[in-house]
Design a protein around this nucleic acid. Sequence first.
DNA 1: CGTTAGGGCGCTATCGCCCTAACGGTGCTATAGT
Length: 506
Amino acid sequence: MKLEKELYKIFGYKIFRPGQKEVIESLMNGDNVLAMLPTGTGKSICFQLPALLLQGTAIVVSPLLSLMEDQVQQLRSQGIKKVAAINSFLTFHEKKMIVNQLERYDIVYISPESLMSNTIIGALSSIQISLFVIDEAHCISQWGHDFRTDYLKLGELWERLNQPPCLAITATATKEVQRDIVQQLRLPDVTTHVYSVHRPNIALQIENYSDIDEKIINLIKWVKKLKGPGLIYFSSRVWAENMAARLQNEGIHNVAFYHGGLDNEDRLLIQQQFINGQLDIVCCTNAFGMGINKNNVRYVIHFHFPQHMEAYIQEIGRAGRDGENSFALLMYCDEDRFLPLSLIEHELPSRKQLDGVKKYLEMLAVSNLLFTNDDVINIQAQMGLSEGALRFLLFHLEEQKVIDQSHIKKQAISNTINSIKQIIENRLNKKINKIHEMVDFINSETCRRMYYLTYFDEKLLEKPESCCDQCGLSIESYMNDNIHQSNQLQKLLPWEQELMQIFHQK
DNA sequence: CGTTAGGGCGCTATCGCCCTAACGGTGCTATAGT
C-alpha cells in the first residue's frame, strides 16, 4: 500500500517527515512500538493515519484536556469527523452517547483517569480496538510514579483489552525512561524508533550569578536585548507573576504569566495569544509547554533550573521549531538548589503521615469496618495529604491488596506501610539524584551540547557554529535588531550620534 | 533558600513587631436529572 498516497489524501502532505513512515509501517504490521521523535516532526500523524486506515477504534491516552481538545478540533477541521474526546468537558448525557457507540469512532481521546472507570473498560471490551496509543508517553515515568498513578495501571488495562497494537510516543526520554515505559506498559516485544534529541539550531548558555538580585537585574537586561518571542521558566507561581509585573514596569510590553493556578479560560486565552503573536513573553511554571505548537519561539530562559535534564531538554526544545537560530539561557545562582529539593520532599506522604494512616487502618480493621469513601476523606483531612499524595497512597494500598474491594487485610497493614516508606525513599533518592545531575550539568566546564547528548546516550557528530557558552557563540545574532542599534547610539556622545546619522543617512 | 501567614506578646495596641512554621510545581475526576 502506498502510505504516501493516503497521507496526501487524508492530510494533504506529500511526504513523510523523518520517522513517521517507519512508525506507521510498524503499527500497520501489528507491532508494539516505542517511538521517540523530535519535537515539531508531527508526532500525531504517526497514530492518526494508521488509526484511519485500520479496522476498529483507536484509543489515544492523552495527559491534558487541552491536548485532546486541540487534536479533535484539528482533525474535525480537516474533515475527519469520527473522532471524540471523553473527558470532564462532556455532560453525563454526551458521555453516555459516545460510550454507547464507541465502535462508530475511528479515534477516541481519553485521559488515563477516565480510562480506568468500569463503564469505559466495559465498553472497550466489547469493541475492536485498532490501536492503543500513549501520547506524551514520558508522562508514565515522569508523573505516573507520583501524582498520576493511573498511568501505572495502563499496562494491566492493555492486557485486559487483549493487547491491541500499542504505540508509546514521546519527544524526550532517556534510555532509562524508555525502559520504564516499556516495563510499565508490560509490552512483551517492542519495536523502537528512536531519533536524536539533538537540536543544532538552539544555542546554549548558562550564567552564574552571586545572588538573586543580580539575577533579576540581568534577566531584565537580557529580555530587553533578546529577539522574541520568548518563554521564561520559573519554579514557583509567585515568581512567575511578580517577574511578569516587574518586566511590565520596565517598559516591556506584551508580557503575561501562566501557571496551573489560573482557571481554564485564562490558560486558554494566554496560550492562544502567545501562539497568535499578541504576546511576546510568557513568564511561566512548567505547566506551560506541552501542546504549545508555536514555531517561532526565539528564546527560552530558565530563571530557575528544572528538576531534571529531560525537563530541561523538553523546555528549551520549545524554541526554534521553525529551524531558525534560537537561544536557551539558564540563569543560576547557588541558592536555587534548595527550592527543588523542598518541592520534592512535600510531594509524597511523609513518614509521620504514613504512621497516621497505619493507625487509622488498624483502628478500622480492629472494629471490622469496611474502608469507605468517607475514610478516604478522613485520611486526607487528618493527615493533611495533598491530592497527589493521597492518590499515591491509595494506589499502593490497593496494589499491595491491603485494601481489596473495601475490605482491609489487617495482617498486611504494617508490612505494606513499611514497603510504601521504602518506595518513597527510593523515589526521593532518585529525584534528588536527578537534581544533582542537573546541577552537575550547570557547573560542568565542557561543551553543553556534548554533555546533554551524552546524557541521552548520543554522540555529538557535528558541532553547530553557534554551540554554547563553553565553545563560544556570537550573541549578537539573537539580539533584537532595533534595540541593539539604539543601545549603540546611547553610548555615543551627541556629536558622535550626529556624525553617525550623517554617514549612515538615517 | 526566601517569602509569607499566623500567633504571641507588650502592656497606651481592633496596633506593630518578632518569631516560627509552612510552603514552594506538574492534572485528572465527579456514573444524577430538568
